[in-house]
């Protein structure tokens, strides 16, 4: 790790001023991504602005939504009674992520901004990484790539966005509140992330120096059932091979509304809008679930190591649709 200056502002304006959009400055929240990548030599900020003392913590009800301060930890959000009662898919996604220790550190804002676990990205000894060194190529596409993405990727980059809770939040149309040198703004999470596309180094629309201050999560209607299924080799403490966040509003034997997020597959937390479209106004059942799953993975781009994920993602979604809808398989 190279040397850096450390500052600890106490309010948001001071934090923004301390950062000042300087490309050599970075914010530090829970530290579980930032410090890890600094140790790896991937991030080398000259100044760290510790934002953990800013007044951006806590969970508040605002109309039909929850407003979650960006510094709220994963454990705190998971323990919230409203989340437990009304947003099971969020709670399950949180508690299936990382470990208790990491969830006590990691903040919800930081979680959304976590960097890929791609070991080619995380090792500066690897020359070819378009995300780390734009234009240098991608060593992962010819490598063993079991933990990589199949949606929103190309030969330029197959890095996976590994967040669980972000998958649930994109499905819920959560909104990110941002403060920056140019003022406040709000961005739907579905528009916050950017597919790897031609510029894998660009992962989201947050400007350098902007801060996520809060995440607004719409509460699901009382009648909506939801849940999160995470598929991985170990029972616990592992990133998803595939996952599915599903919320279904079923009325009189018909799916009135469906919300689907897929994890373990996308260069960004993946909203499966095409699958939702298949389900909407259809009776729940195995056939339509399989049709939705096919739609969800349309456009998948695989390398030999990720081919299995196409089928696994489909089965994961079908299983979770079956579970949430309580339809006999």
């Amino acid at each position: 790790m190279r040397t850096f200056e450390y500052v600890r502002p106490l309010d948001v304006p001071d934090a923004l001023a301390a950062h000042a959009g300087d490309t050599a400055t970075a914010y530090l929240a829970g530290g579980t991504t930032q410090l890890d990548l600094m140790k790896d030599g991937v991030l080398e900020p000259a100044r760290l602005v510790d934002i953990t003392r800013l007044p951006m913590r806590g969970i508040f009800t605002e109309g039909t939504a929850l407003r979650v301060g960006a510094l709220t930890t994963m454990e705190e959000l998971a323990a919230d009674p409203t989340v437990e009662r009304r947003l099971p898919l969020v709670r399950e996604a949180l508690l299936l992520g990382a470990s208790v220790q990491l969830r006590n550190m990691a903040t919800i804002g930081g979680n959304l901004l976590q960097r890929t676990r791609c070991r080619y990205f995380r090792d500066p000894g690897v020359a070819a990484c378009n995300k780390r060194a734009p234009g240098s190529g991608c060593a992962a596409v010819t490598g063993p790539a079991r933990m990589h993405a199949i949606l929103g990727v190309s030969e330029r980059c197959i890095a996976l966005h590994a967040s669980d809770v972000a998958v649930a939040l994109v499905a819920l149309d959560a909104v990110v509140h941002v403060e920056g040198p140019e003022g406040d703004r709000s961005v739907p999470l579905t528009e916050f992330y950017v597919e790897a596309g031609t510029r894998p180094e660009v992962e989201h629309t947050l400007g350098h120096g902007e801060l996520i201050t809060a995440v607004e999560i719409p509460r699901l209607p009382e009648t909506t059932r939801s849940g999160y299924l995470k598929v991985r080799d170990r029972v616990s403490y592992e990133f998803a091979l595939t996952s599915a966040a599903v919320a279904l509003d079923i009325e009189n034997g018909m799916i009135r509304d469906a919300r689907i997020g897929l994890g373990g597959v996308g260069s960004k937390p993946w909203r499966a809008a095409a699958a939702e479209e298949v389900l909407r106004d259809a009776p729940p059942g195995p056939a339509v679930f399989r049709e939705a799953a096919e739609a969800a993975v349309t456009g998948a781009w695989t390398v030999p190591g990720t081919e299995f994920k196409v089928e696994l993602a489909k089965r994961t979604l079908v299983r979770q649709l079956t579970t949430v809808s309580e339809v006999a398989p």
Partner: peptide
């Protein structure tokens, strides 16, 4: 490296002393 900070278990390796 699990320790308690303000009563909660965290990882000391990903916590800066300054924090």
């Amino acid at each position: 490296c699990t320790v308690h900070v303000d009563g909660r278990r965290v990882l000391a390796c990903l916590t800066l002393l300054a924090q």
